[in-house]
């Protein structure tokens, strides 16, 4: 599986795809995209890398187990869901900072929620694929 072309391609593809995934995540509120899609694209970027270099190599590069991203993402999403409760609003109500921020646009709890989704999706996909591929090889 470790062909040279794939290796050099994925070396360039990884950052580009990651950047693209963040882009998808951030602009999801306005254009097609969002946390799910962004997370999936990011995961595919890593999967490609692992196909080219081997899963162990990718894991080394990541420096943390994908499993540990899952709780992080879940907690971010859960907190942004719970936050409105402290303002006396129902769970999950959107909270917004009224000042728009460049590139991203309006920032609100929905964005953090999306970031949580993004992280969970990456964590989940990588956990599943890497656990299996480490087991298989």
């Amino acid at each position: 599986m470790k062909s040279v072309i794939l290796q050099s391609a994925s070396r360039y593809l990884l950052p580009i795809l990651l950047l693209f995934s963040v882009f998808l995540l951030l602009r999801g509120h306005y254009y097609p995209g969002g946390g799910f899609v962004g997370g999936l694209v990011a995961a595919i970027a890593f999967v490609l890398h692992s196909l080219a270099f081997g899963t162990a190599e990718t894991m080394k590069m990541l420096q943390f187990t994908p499993l540990s991203i899952i709780p992080v993402g879940l907690i971010i999403a859960a907190i942004s869901m719970l936050l409105p409760v402290f303002f006396g609003l129902p769970v999950m109500t959107g909270l917004w900072i009224e000042q728009p921020i460049p590139v991203v646009g309006l920032v609100g709890s929905a964005l953090f929620f999306d970031i949580g989704v993004y992280l969970v999706v990456i964590g989940v996909v990588l956990t599943i694929l890497f656990t299996i591929s480490l087991e298989t090889h």
Binding site: H29, M81, G116
Partner: peptide, 29 residues
């Protein structure tokens, strides 16, 4: 505050679905 209605539905109108959908994903992982 959004223009992609599908995404708005996912993270706001029906955000609860999404919240527990990622829980499903996490459990399966």
């Amino acid at each position: 505050r959004g223009k992609n209605v599908v995404n708005i539905v996912l993270v706001d109108f029906r955000g609860f679905d999404t919240m527990f959908e990622i829980v499903v994903l996490s459990i399966s992982a």
